[in-house]
């Protein structure tokens, strides 16, 4: 077990290095045809909080429009990686590049908490997502369109406190989508939802991603969610990417298929064996 893991580790390390060759694509499966997404290259990324070295050299290439899931045990630095990508933390060493100059509106983050303004009605909350275009004439229309996309057009004049958890999260999604971001980062966006709402939200995420073609980076602690949504699942261990697993299943994904279940099992065993070693 030990030796097997070591080899798989070095293999994936090699694989992730080779990803840096331009146009080398690990994932050969269907992706949104017209991708608006940005590619993402991370090299030698390091981050410490005081003495706590959280990320110890992340190397990663994400092609434009790919849906990547990041899993790993609690405290391994998933959120930190996401916050670095979104520019919410300072990089200690290494680099993150999107292959071109980007606008703030190009990258959006969605958290486990919806973070809606309780004193603004639903539509106004979505308009916040327009960034500098907030004051533009078509702000209302764009926000309404985004609300329609998440199926909440009829709630536009509601106060957030009167929405259910799932509805709040859909408003947060509309706010993230309204500026047509090219990279969308999710930090356990469905973590606080019940099982049924989770599944319908997963379908919604997959649908908007297929419609809009942004590059999606999803941090989750739910491995079945990772394989159900992502083209590729990264396992973080000891501050590095320990496994890089390709999910080659057709879309829309068939939940509970043997193929996905098998992948889920092997990723889980990676996670568990890492846990045993510590």
């Amino acid at each position: 077990m030990q030796t097997a893991l070591r080899t798989s580790l070095s293999e994936t390390e090699l694989a992730s290095r080779s990803n840096f060759a331009p146009h080398a694509r690990v994932v050969r499966e269907e992706r949104p045809v017209h991708t608006s997404g940005l590619p993402l290259s991370i090299r030698g990324l390091r981050k410490s909080f005081g003495d706590n070295e959280v990320l110890r050299g992340i190397d990663l290439h994400i092609p434009a429009g790919q849906f990547v899931a990041i899993v790993g045990k609690s405290g391994c630095g998933k959120s930190t990686l996401l916050r670095l990508i979104a520019g919410l933390e300072k990089i200690d060493a290494g680099s993150i590049s999107f292959g071109q100059d980007i606008q703030p509106e190009d990258i959006r983050v969605m958290f486990q908490e919806p973070r809606l303004l309780p004193w603004a009605r639903v539509l106004a909350n979505v308009e916040v997502g327009l960034g500098r275009d907030r004051a533009s004439k078509d702000a209302h229309a764009r926000a309404e369109k985004a609300l329609t996309e998440v199926g909440l057009a009829d709630k536009r004049d509601q106060w957030p406190s009167l929405l259910s958890g799932g509805q709040k999260q859909r408003v947060a999604l509309a706010r993230a989508l309204v500026s047509r971001p090219r990279v969308l980062a999710f930090d356990e966006p469905l973590g606080a939802l019940d099982a049924l709402t989770r599944i319908s939200m997963q379908r919604l995420l997959e649908r908007v991603w297929r419609d809009q073609g942004f590059t999606a980076i999803l941090v989750t602690h739910d491995v079945s969610e990772a394989v159900a949504l992502a083209d590729r699942v990264l396992v973080i261990e000891d501050g590095r990417i320990a496994h890089d697993v390709v999910v080659n299943a057709g879309r829309p994904r068939q939940r509970g298929s043997a193929e996905l279940a098998g992948l889920e099992g092997s990723i889980l065993s990676h996670l568990l064996s890492a846990d045993d070693r510590t």
């Binding site: 979104a86 509106e105 959006r108 983050v109 958290f111 973070r115 916040v128 997502g129 960034g131 500098r132």
Partner: peptide, 12 residues
């Protein structure tokens, strides 16, 4: 503070 961070993320 999460709302303040949200505001900053959305370029306020």
């Amino acid at each position: 503070p999460q709302l303040i961070e949200m505001g900053r993320i959305y370029g306020m």
